[in-house]
Design a protein around this nucleic acid. Structure first.
Lengths: 216, 216
DNA sequence: CAGTGCTTTTGTGTATACATGAAGGGCGGC
DNA sequence: GCCGCCCTTCATGTATACACAAAAGCACTG
């Protein structure tokens, strides 16, 4: 693997994990030395992170990990709503109904059995991949990939409670059913509802975390 | 200005102008020599172009200018529709009505006087800037900027006729009026109509250009 | 003592040298 | 004569050296 890829993935993971918190300064020489690569591939990694919006050039000389506050999350979800509603509509038109019927059944089963976090996240990831595949639009997929990159960090900031997770499974089931039924309106509206609930939960969790900053 | 910026802008302009046609191979040493910069800033420029989607890595070793065909344009407009409808809705909620009333009046005047191409494109650019400003969402604005970058090339491929241009002014006037009236539904639907008409015109022009490939 | 200007230092921007790997051509064998 | 292997070459990936600019610190002056 290329050194620039390693640097990118490492930094990406560290930013998503919170090991590199918002505001952390990323000096080229410093990070290059730490990651064991030279400045050239590290610069490329920083450029990619900047294109993703995960780091920003605070001043011409200093690159920092971008901040994430409630307003950012609202903006992200505005963007996400526009894209995912469109994606849901397109998938309802183009997707293989059988594939989404199968996904819907899996969501239903997961909801009943109440499985763990990792099973749920894995299922979500497969659902997202199927959506991307069905939509078959590189512009949309690329933008959705960027959003998901940011969402990893947002989820970490606002640790979702099991109750919300369970509700989310049901919402996904409905979206998958709608796509399988080729009902574009329902798919879009169910997506809207899902994102509304997700945002509400995240903002509530964030506000809660602010009042009692412990438990880190 | 930085050498990497110069390289980026030059290459961007040449791709948008068609001087670098789709499929053109961009070797690092070759382009670096041609543009009078070294490989390091040129690589950065290529990376930015790749992030924009204007060049693609055809194979691990060769970077080419991305192709634009009718399917690409349809995909671009699907994406654009999702974003601009959302932007129109948000602008209708958040924009300063007076600003868009003024823009709407300018569109009306332009429509009456039948001014030239450059005046129209300039007005559109100001409208887009006002929209970006009103929406106040970096994710949306960033995605819209990417779209506009691609649109320059699309417009060049499908030279729009004066008739379509004139109709487009009227469609923009309606969108601006809707935003000024804070009518989100009308703004979104007028945007949808506008993009539908624009896409139809572009695809027709493209099909026409294919049957008579002269007039280049 | 404070303010200003100079100097030093540090970090980025750029150029170039080196390593590595793939692709193409040529030569040899079958 | 054709196929396959090896060698050469050239492209990218990486490392590093150099240049420049900005910021910080110190010293000198008012």
């Amino acid at each position: 693997m290329r050194a620039s890829d390693r640097a990118y993935r490492t930094l990406l993971g560290e930013i998503q994990d919170g090991q590199l918190p918002a505001g952390a300064v990323l000096g080229e020489v410093e990070q290059a030395a730490r990651l064991g690569v030279s400045r050239t591939p590290l610069r490329e990694a920083l450029a990619r992170l900047a294109a993703d919006g995960l780091v920003v050039q605070q001043s011409p000389r200093v690159t920092v990990v971008s901040d994430v506050d409630a307003d950012d999350i609202r903006a992200l979800f505005e963007f996400r709503r526009a894209l995912e509603e469109a994606a849901a509509r397109l998938a309802a038109t183009r997707a293989d109904p059988a594939e989404f019927a199968e996904l819907a059944a899996e969501f239903d089963r997961t909801s009943l059995r109440g499985e763990g976090r990792e099973h749920y996240y894995d299922l979500i990831a497969r659902f997202d991949a199927a959506l991307d595949d069905a939509v078959d639009n590189v512009y949309l997929s690329s933008a959705l990939r960027t959003i998901r990159t940011h969402l990893v960090r947002v989820r970490r900031l606002a640790r979702e409670n099991p109750q919300r997770l369970s509700a989310s499974v049901g919402e996904h089931a409905l979206i998958a059913h709608a796509i399988a039924a080729q009902d574009a309106d329902l798919a879009a509206h169910a997506t809207h509802v899902h994102l509304h609930n997700a945002l509400t939960s995240i903002l509530a969790s964030l506000a809660e975390a602010r009042t009692e900053p412990g438990a880190a």
